[in-house]
Design a protein around this nucleic acid. Structure first.
Length: 489
RNA sequence: GGCGGCGUAGCCAAGCGGCUAAGGCACUGGUCUGCAAAACCAUGAUUCAGCGGUUCAAAUCCGCUCGCCGCCUCCA
C-alpha cells in the first residue's frame, strides 16, 4: 500500500514515489547547538524517527541526513557570555543533544553533517549563485537576490509584494531589495571566520542546508523536513538557493510538523515557557513522552501539561499490562480444548497490522495507529479474563502472536520496547523511591494485616490498609495473597 | 495588515462525501472482595463552534460570523 504524505509545497496529500525506487532520501534541519533541547526539539526528532522507522518497516531503504548548525549569531553570543570558543560551546551542546536522544531511544540518522565542516561547499554554492547573477557581494557580505528567482514564495504561499507590505525588516543599506537575505556574512573583529573570495566571514544559516543536502543527497531528493516555523524564511530561502543554483527541483515533498504548546502558546526560548527534555525525563519514562507525542498527529499542535502526561502514562500502562499478562501465561495449552476466541475476536487481532498500516499510510497518523493497538488489546484482555486454568492452545497462540504484533508495531513509535514485566517492576520501584516507606515495612504490615484478616478482625485490617494508603501504598487482595502498588498521581 | 491552521462527548484525540462518529483518560454500573483498592468488562456525542449553501447524501465541500493559535524577526 502506498504511503501518502501531506506536502507543504502543494498543500495536498500525495503518494510518496521515491526518485530511486525503494530508496528514500530525507533531509531534516537539526538543531543550532547552543543550549539544552526542549520538548519541541524532542517532537521534531521523534516525529522523523517514527517516519524513518515506518518507511523502513514498509521495505524502503532510507538515507536520513540531519545537520547540526554549529556556527551562527546565537552561538557566538552565548560563547562570548560563557568565555568559551564557539567550537567548544557548539560541541558541548551536541554532546548534550546526544545524551537526550539516547535517553529517548532516537535512532541516529545516516549522516549528521556539521556546518563548520562544509564551509567550502557553501562557498562554492555561493560562487555559483553570483556567477548566475542571483547573488551579489556588498561590503564583505553576500546577498541572495530574491527578485532573481521566479518561484520565490511558493513554499510558504506568499508573494514578495505582500511580504514587503507587512515588512518588519530592519533596514540594511547593503541590500538591493529589503527581502534579500544573507548568504555570507563578513565577520567582525574577534568573531570566528573563514577565508572566502569576499573576505573573511561565515555562512548564512540558509546556505548551510542547501550545501549539505546537495553534497549528501544530490540536487533533487525526496523529502525535506522540519518544524512549521522553518517554512519561512528558512526553507523558502533554501529552496530559492538550491533551485537557483541547480536549475532542478530541490525536493519533491516537504514535511513540517506542528509545535509543542503550553497552555496553547508556542513553547519557545523567547517566551521562556519551555521545558527541557531532561526536565521531563527526570519525571517520566521516555516511552511516556513518546506515547504522548504520538497521541496527536504530527502536524497538529500538541499541548503539553502534567495531566496530558498522566493520561499518556495510564494509556501506556494499559498496553504494558496486557503484554505482561500474556508473557506470564503458562506455556502449555490443551490442543483439543474449545477456543474462547470467536471469529470476530480473531479477526480483530489478526487484522491489527493491516489497520495499523492503513493509519500510518495516511500521512503517519500515529494517533489512529495507537487506537488500533488499543482495539487489539481490548479483545486480548477480554480473552485473558475468561481464560481457564487449562487454556486451549489456539487461544494461547492467538494471544501470543497478537502480543508479538502489538510489540512489533509499537516499536515504530518506540514504545513497548522494554520487557513488560521489567517495565512494570521498574516503574513500581521508581514510584516507591518517592514514598517514605520501604518494601520491607510494607511487607511486614501486609503480613500483620493478613493475620488480622484471618482472625476476621476487620477493624485492625482496615486500619493497616488505611495507614499504608496514607503512605501512597495501595493493597490488592488476590487468590495468591496480597499484592501492593504505589498510588498513581 | 498579509499568509496559514484549528474549533468533534467532562478532558485529550481520530475521522478528509455514504456502514451504528475510532481510541485513550476521567465518571458511572458490573465482575472480584469481609468491605475496599487494583485489574478487567460495560456504558456515553441523534451529533461534530454558529448560520446559510451545494448534494440523493456533509463533521467531512463552499460562503459568512464568532472564538483560539501560528508564521511574516532567531526559533523545532
Amino acid at each position: 500500500m502506498p504511503v501518502k504524505i501531506y506536502n507543504t509545497l502543494t498543500r495536498k496529500k500525495e503518494i510518496l514515489k521515491p526518485i530511486e525506487p525503494g530508496h528514500i532520501k530525507l533531509y531534516v534541519c537539526g538543531i543550532t547547538s547552543y543550549d539544552y533541547c526542549h520538548i519541541g526539539h524532542a517532537r521534531s526528532a521523534l516525529a522523523f524517527d517514527m517516519i524513518v522507522r515506518y518507511l523502513r518497516y514498509t521495505g524502503n531503504k532510507v538515507t536520513y541526513v540531519r545537520n547540526f548548525t554549529d556556527i551562527d549569531d546565537k552561538i557566538i553570543a552565548r560563547a562570548a557570555e560563557q568565555n568559551s570558543s564557539t567550537e567548544e560551546l557548539a560541541n558541548r551542546f551536541i554532546d548534550e543533544f546526544y545524551v537526550d536522544m539516547d535517553r529517548l531511544g532516537v535512532d541516529r540518522p545516516t549522516m549528521e553533517p556539521k556546518a563548520t565542516e562544509h564551509i567550502q561547499e557553501m562557498i562554492d554554492l555561493i560562487a555559483e549563485l553570483i556567477d548566475k547573477d542571483m547573488a551579489y557581494p556588498a561590503s564583505g557580505d553576500v546577498y541572495y537576490s530574491v527578485n532573481s528567482f521566479k518561484g520565490y514564495g511558493k513554499l510558504s504561499g506568499r508573494n514578495l509584494e505582500d511580504m514587503q507590505a507587512g515588512a518588519r525588516i530592519t533596514v540594511n543599506e547593503n541590500k538591493t531589495n529589503p527581502m534579500d537575505f544573507v548568504l555570507w556574512k563578513a565577520s567582525k573583529p574577534g568573531e570566528p571566520s573563514w577565508e572566502s573570495p569576499w573576505g573573511p566571514g561565515r555562512p548564512g544559516w540558509h546556505i548551510e542546508c542547501s550545501a549539505m543536502s546537495r553534497k549528501y543527497l544530490g540536487s533533487t531528493f525526496d523529502i525535506h523536513g522540519g518544524g512549521q516555523d522553518l517554512i519561512f524564511p528558512h526553507h523558502e530561502n533554501e529552496l530559492a538557493q538550491s533551485e537557483g543554483a541547480n536549475d532542478k527541483p530541490f525536493v519533491n515533498m516537504w514535511i513540517h510538523h506542528g509545535f509543542v504548546t503550553i497552555r496553547d502558546e508556542k513553547m519557545s526560548k523567547s517566551l521562556g515557557n519551555f521545558l527541557t527534555i531532561r526536565d521531563i525525563l527526570d519525571h517520566y519514562h521516555p516511552e511516556v513522552l513518546r506515547f504522548f507525542i504520538f497521541s496527536t498527529h504530527y502536524r497538529n499542535p500538541l499541548d503539553f501539561s502534567e495531566a496530558a502526561m498522566q493520561d499518556a502514562m495510564a494509556g501506556l500502562d494499559r498496553l504494558y499490562n496486557c503484554i505482561a499478562a500474556i508473557d506470564a501465561l503458562k506455556a502449555e495449552g490443551l490442543d483439543d480444548a474449545v477456543p474462547l476466541a470467536g471469529d470476530k475476536d480473531r479477526k480483530k487481532i489478526e487484522g491489527l497490522e493491516q489497520r495499523f498500516q492503513k493509519a500510518m499510510d495516511n500521512d503517519f497518523n500515529t494517533a489512529q495507529a495507537q487506537g488500533s493497538l488499543f482495539e487489539a488489546v481490548k479483545v486480548m484482555n477480554k480473552i485473558l479474563r475468561q481464560l481457564p486454568e487449562n487454556a486451549a492452545t489456539a487461544d494461547l497462540d492467538l494471544l501470543r502472536s497478537g502480543a508479538a504484533t502489538v510489540r512489533k508495531l509499537a516499536a515504530i513509535m518506540g514504545i513497548l520496547e522494554e520487557d513488560a514485566a521489567s517495565y512494570l517492576a521498574g516503574k513500581k520501584a521508581a514510584m516507591l523511591a518517592k514514598t517514605d516507606i520501604s518494601e520491607a515495612e510494607i511487607l511486614e504490615l501486609i503480613q500483620k494485616r493478613n493475620q488480622a484478616r484471618k482472625d476476621k478482625d476487620w477493624a485492625l485490617s482496615d486500619q493497616i490498609r488505611d495507614t499504608l494508603l496514607e503512605k501512597e501504598i495501595e493493597l490488592k487482595d488476590g487468590p495468591d495473597g496480597t499484592a501492593w502498588s504505589v498510588k498513581r498521581g
